[in-house]
Design a protein around this nucleic acid. Structure first.
Ligand code: FES
Ligand code: FES
Lengths: 151, 151
DNA sequence: TTCAAAAAAGACAATTTTATCTTTTATAAA
DNA sequence: TTTATAAAAGATAAAATTGTCTTTTTTGAA
């Protein structure tokens, strides 16, 4: 569906956003631990999201990653778009070189509806919304609740 | 979303099904050409689908791939399941180790709806249906209609 | 029974994605 | 100004997916 890199990225951003407090920043080690993601890989992803202005970083001591006010109301699709691009939401479900209603594959009509619904989900959901849900409780962005027997 | 292997597989199966006539079989070369898929790779995929009883093959001269009556009413999900498995339809949209309403990620409620809709699309659509649509015209399983300028 | 055609099987290669490690650069505080 | 800290950048490495090529097996017809 979407890449692991993208999923790590979304979880990391939600975590940072959920902890947004004046001046508070988080370093890679903390973030990776909190969202159960490989540290070095997450570093690359966040570095890239910073370049794409999804989140913000500051080097040096007392530095780290944080999210600015103007970044908090971005839809989640911004993160997906930055990392994976929009191709999943444009591609033909049967792999034709282009999805089009003029030259549709036999699944086009049904597939497009489901694909658009998924796109809509990512478009209408903001970073702020997910961060708030996380803070309200009952939602998780790591596996630390999962019982050993279920892994 | 789903793998390229799976998409090649679906297109190949639809093609074979659309040409189903008593005793008529198609070899890899014909099938790969008709669905714009790499020949050797498609061979592996069809070989696998035969093992999984999605289609049927016969070796030797006058052999090839064909689909039997009892195989024609399978839902497309059977092909997806054989090649990719069902994990896409079970996985957490944010990559948690398990998707569950007991320990949901902040996107769970919305994501699950879209993911289930996609699953439903693959479940309710049969090989026969897609093959018939193809035969009725206006639908395509290759790129041979695509204008060079659009590639 | 021989032969040619076709899939099956197996080995291997290329590409993409995921992941790690090392070095460099920026920065804030002492 | 020095120092410690943290991200950025760059170089690799591992794994998964996609793709190809060669050899073997099956099979129908001549
Ligand atoms: S053409 Fe296949 S999904 Fe649109
Ligand atoms: S827990 Fe994330 S989608 Fe269900």
């Amino acid at each position: 569906m979407i890449s692991k890199a993208c999923k790590y990225g979304i979880r990391a951003v939600i975590f940072v956003a959920s902890k947004k407090t004046e001046g508070l920043k988080f370093n890679i080690k903390q973030i990776a631990r909190e969202v159960d993601a490989p540290e070095a890989f997450t570093a690359k992803i966040l570095q890239f999201l910073n370049k794409n202005h999804v989140i913000t970083s500051l080097k040096g001591p007392y530095g780290g990653f944080f999210i600015e006010d103007y970044q908090l109301d971005q839809p989640i699709i911004n993160i997906v778009n930055a990392i994976d691009g929009m191709s999943v939401f444009k591609e033909c479900g049967l792999g034709l070189k282009q999805c089009s209603s003029v030259y549709p594959c036999p699944m086009h009509d049904q597939y497009k509806i489901a694909r658009d619904a998924l796109l809509n989900t990512f478009q209408k959901t903001s970073i702020r919304q997910l961060a708030e849900q996380l803070n309200e409780g009952g939602f998780y962005i790591n596996n630390q609740n999962v019982l050993a027997e279920n892994i």
